[in-house]
């Protein structure tokens, strides 16, 4: 829409992006060894089992680390944080922290976060995070 990078789902990741369009953050769990993992793939990275299940994550997590970019890119006006969020279920994923000043003072490591979903194209909703309990 604005020249920004838009994910192109593959057969192995389509369920994830279908989930975010419904406002759900989906993870996968191995039915054999119970490992929870991300990014999506139809087999377990811990034990190689092909018997895995998709489940809805809580959407809760903590701010693991981040940088604050001071360069504008399509879809982003500097300064903005590029963050890694550790989900309650264990896996980490890259994201942005929204509804929060993009400053070191406001962005405290380990602060509790909750998922929110932003539409960036006709079909893609990007999972982002905001401080837990923050008003959008």
């Amino acid at each position: 829409m604005d020249g920004r990078e838009v994910p192109v789902p593959t057969p192995e990741t389509k369920h994830f992006w279908d989930g975010t369009a419904r406002g759900e953050l989906l993870l996968q769990r191995c039915d054999s060894c119970r490992a929870v993992y991300f990014p999506p793939r139809p087999f377990c990275p811990a034990c190689a089992s092909r018997t895995v299940s998709v489940f809805k994550a809580s959407g809760r997590g903590q701010l693991h680390s981040y940088t604050i970019s001071h360069r504008d890119v399509p879809g982003y006006k500097a300064p903005y944080a590029i963050a890694v969020v550790e989900l309650e279920e264990g896996p980490r994923l890259m994201s942005n922290i929204v509804d929060c000043p993009q400053t070191p003072e406001a962005l405290r490591l380990d602060m509790p976060l909750e998922a929110t979903f932003r539409q960036i194209s006709e079909t893609i909703w990007l999972p982002q995070f905001r401080p837990a309990g923050a008003r959008p």
Binding site: E5, V8, P39, S65, R71, V73, I82, I120
Partner: peptide, 23 residues
Amino acid sequence: HRQFELPYGVWGPPSLFTIPVLR
């Protein structure tokens, strides 16, 4: 990387390599 990192305002090594250091 293209699906799960690049869409978040990533623009090259300075916006990626730096992320772990605050931790």
